[in-house]
């Protein structure tokens, strides 16, 4: 076996044709999970078998919003919170396109929260990948709509006292056709879930738990990205097809609590103008 370690850029990754490789290495922090999500998304495009011209990637504002800038498909970096209405317009105008929204929990669930529930209610033909790192990472680690109770942030130095959204439960209640939650460690299951979403008409929602070592991990003593991912590995329990999504809240403070992941909802429902 040869080990090829090339310090020049002459070695290209086999998936580089789907990335804007000239912009790599990307600006995201060491240990950040967003890179893995982008990587899994382009792997899913590669395996989906449909021409990459038929794929559209839309993202909002935040660290996760950078995703649209690194994938080599038609991509749009929209204003804060408006990734979903923009993507909805694309999907309605041309139902042949596979439109994927990659954005963060702050963008999709806070300022874009209303767009989210209404896109799910309409069952718009969109695939939504929500990268959940439990805080507003880019602006310095403020408490967001998914910050677990007791978790610390810039705006909650004693720990958050707000109750967070339970994203799979919210998506199911709002009417999504496909709902899943994975972590960046479950790359194969996550890529498989993205592929299922691409093959499905209707609103498909996938939450990905991603480490944020620079902001969230540092303030909550979770260590480096590797330590946070190891915590997911120890605490995650896979429960595909779980019926009751209400107890799926995430407790970051109590390390004894399990985190339930899996493909939870897969129903057939008429998609919006698709």
């Amino acid at each position: 076996m040869n080990t090829q370690t090339d310090s020049s850029f002459s070695v290209v990754h086999p998936i580089d044709h789907l990335m804007r490789a000239d912009r790599l290495p990307h600006i995201l922090c060491a240990g950040c999970g967003i890179g893995t999500v982008i990587h899994s998304y382009v792997h899913a495009i590669n395996e989906f078998g449909v021409d990459e011209d038929r794929h559209v990637c839309v993202s909002g504002i935040g660290c996760s919003g950078r995703a649209a800038g690194y994938v080599n498909v038609d991509s749009y970096h929209t204003t804060h919170g408006r990734a979903l209405p923009f993507a909805l317009g694309i999907a309605v105008y041309n139902p042949e396109l596979t439109v994927t929204v990659i954005s963060g929990d702050g963008d999709l669930m806070a300022i874009g929260g209303n767009h989210f529930i209404h896109a799910a209610r309409r069952n718009a033909n969109l695939n939504v990948i929500c990268i959940n790192n439990f805080n507003y990472g880019m602006t310095g680690g403020q408490v967001g709509p998914t910050t677990p109770v007791g978790a610390k942030g810039t705006t909650a130095p004693q720990g958050s006292v707000e109750h967070p959204f339970n994203l799979p439960h919210l998506a199911k209640a709002a009417g999504a056709s496909f709902v899943a939650r994975w972590t960046v460690l479950h790359v194969r299951q996550f890529t498989d879930a993205v592929l299922r979403a691409m093959n499905k008409k209707g609103f498909c929602f996938i939450e990905v738990l991603a480490p944020c070592p620079t902001s969230f991990g540092r303030r909550n003593n979770l260590g480096e990205g590797l330590d946070e991912v190891e915590m997911y590995r120890q605490r995650c329990r896979i429960e595909n097809g779980a019926q009751d999504l209400e107890p799926l809240d995430i407790d970051i403070v109590d390390h004894e609590q399990t985190i339930t992941v899996g493909n939870f909802v897969d129903i057939e429902r008429a998609a919006f103008l698709a």
Partner: peptide, 21 residues
Amino acid sequence: PVGDVHVIAERCKECGYCIEY
């Protein structure tokens, strides 16, 4: 199966995921 490992050193940020897992 046997594989060859290829590393693009200039892109690496030492997160350690590949080494750990």
